[in-house]
């Protein structure tokens, strides 16, 4: 939880967030972003002023429920269409560089 008043965000935290969101940022970008985010977070911290303890959150603008589709097969793309945007492909599959982590 951010402390009362104004949260701060440093370069280390930005670097961590960049790793989480898989963005390669160079040092100058990290510095610049840390400064800007610090200012932005200072501004959005205003949100904590609102007393809303008993207020339910709104996740959807329009209150709809139970929107489903019947279990019916529809045509797929052709493999050529599916692969049309691929940066690299091999044997009808998307080719990617070696993967580090096993999920």
């Amino acid at each position: 939880m951010p402390e009362a008043g104004r949260p701060t965000i440093g370069r280390e935290e930005v670097a961590h967030l960049a790793r989480l969101s898989r963005l390669a940022l160079d040092d100058s970008e990290l510095d610049r972003l840390a400064g800007q985010l610090d200012v932005i977070l200072g501004a959005v911290a205003q949100i904590s002023e609102v007393s809303a303890a008993d207020v339910p959150p709104t996740s959807h603008a329009v209150p709809l429920e139970n929107v489903t589709r019947p279990d019916v097969v529809m045509p797929s793309l052709t493999p050529a269409q599916a692969l049309s945007g691929a940066p690299s492909e091999e044997d009808g599959r998307f080719r990617v560089p070696r993967i580090l982590d096993e999920e």
């Binding site: 599916a82 998307f94 080719r95 990617v96 993967i99």
Partner: peptide
């Protein structure tokens, strides 16, 4: 296996 592979091919 994933270790030691040169690349991977993905089928969705």
């Amino acid at each position: 296996r994933i270790h030691g592979a040169s690349h991977s091919l993905v089928d969705y």
